[in-house]
Design a binder for these strands. Sequence first.
DNA 1: CGAGTCACTGGAACTCGTTCTAGGCTAGCG
DNA 2: CGCTAGCCTAGAACGAGTTCCAGTGACTCG
Lengths: 204, 204
Amino acid sequence: MTAEVKPAALRLTERQEARRRRILHASARLASRGGFDAVQMREVAENSGVALGTLYRYFPSKVHLLVATMQDQLQHMHETLRKRPPTEAEPAARVAQTLMRAFRALQREPHLADAMVRALTFADRSVSPEVDTVSRLTTAIILDAMGLADSPTPEQLSAVRVIEHTWHSALITWLSGRASIAQVKIDIETVCRLIDLTAPAPAR
Amino acid sequence: MTAEVKPAALRLTERQEARRRRILHASARLASRGGFDAVQMREVAENSGVALGTLYRYFPSKVHLLVATMQDQLQHMHETLRKRPPTEAEPAARVAQTLMRAFRALQREPHLADAMVRALTFADRSVSPEVDTVSRLTTAIILDAMGLADSPTPEQLSAVRVIEHTWHSALITWLSGRASIAQVKIDIETVCRLIDLTAPAPAR
DNA sequence: CGAGTCACTGGAACTCGTTCTAGGCTAGCG
DNA sequence: CGCTAGCCTAGAACGAGTTCCAGTGACTCG
């Protein structure tokens, strides 16, 4: 019975787990409206039924909160993508297809995307561990799409990093209205060509 | 005589021009110490000898100010690079060399780099025109390095955009301590290979 | 010269992220 | 049963970005 909850050591009571969920939920909801600015800590606290101090105990800053929110969303996305893997044959095309799917998902909640991406790139060193987690999740998604969850070469990892860079930065230009959806698509497809350069063993 | 000053219509008095310079200078100086957080509007105002309200008349927000600071620095960089163009033979290598030079310059003032890059990626739509100027400057620098200041193909422009994405995002990961200098170098070199893919006419 | 206009000044005021304080509730333990 | 430790709440307080306002000085136009 007592062993029913798994994170006994790290994350305490399930009541606390519930609080955490409520907070993340409120955060996402507020973000879905006005974006980064609309996520106000007092509002998040109210909407999730905790005191301001408690909110800060769970997430030491607004950026921490939003990055955690992004983790949460990415996790969903990852699971969804696992269930419906890309249909293309070539690794480059598979990655492009996957990222475009993710992009379309973000388009459905542009304000939420704004809040999360802005937080991610604005994060300073104190948020590094959390940002790193997001980065690892993203890497995993891309590697999955390439069809090599393991055994990537260092060259391939570099290509994946560059793809991630492009992904984040392209999102920002889109969110700030400086690039169109079509442009983002082109950029993604362009960078995915790098994968061909670091092609699977045979091409070497 | 009266034609000596060019921006007669847009930017008024030379006294105003001087104020603007003082503000940008103060901004850069403060940024060189503590980075983004150390650039406090009240301090910038004091240090440049203008009232807070005046500072806001010149730069409608802290982000505007820092993006303008970046414009300023980029302009210097561009001129410097023009004087000492890259020595490599291949376009890809030339671009990589140029960006690594810029990177080394940023390493000399990491706090300033932090302030400028954070502002750039945090900027919202209200700063789009200014951010766009920075982007055009960066594009010009890269095209210069490739050796084709004019007549780039759409394909090449895509590659340049992707290189810019990588450049900004890689800087961020470096600034937030999540990537080493060596890693940034690798990422830059990796993305520059894209140039070979959109090679000059002959290779088509 | 006089009046109006406009940029600039000094400083108060407002917002929102963040921190701090005092007190209350719960849970385990003597 | 009463105590102690921790977590939580309500709310005040502080800091920095941003806005506002009244006043002042300079320049222009009549």
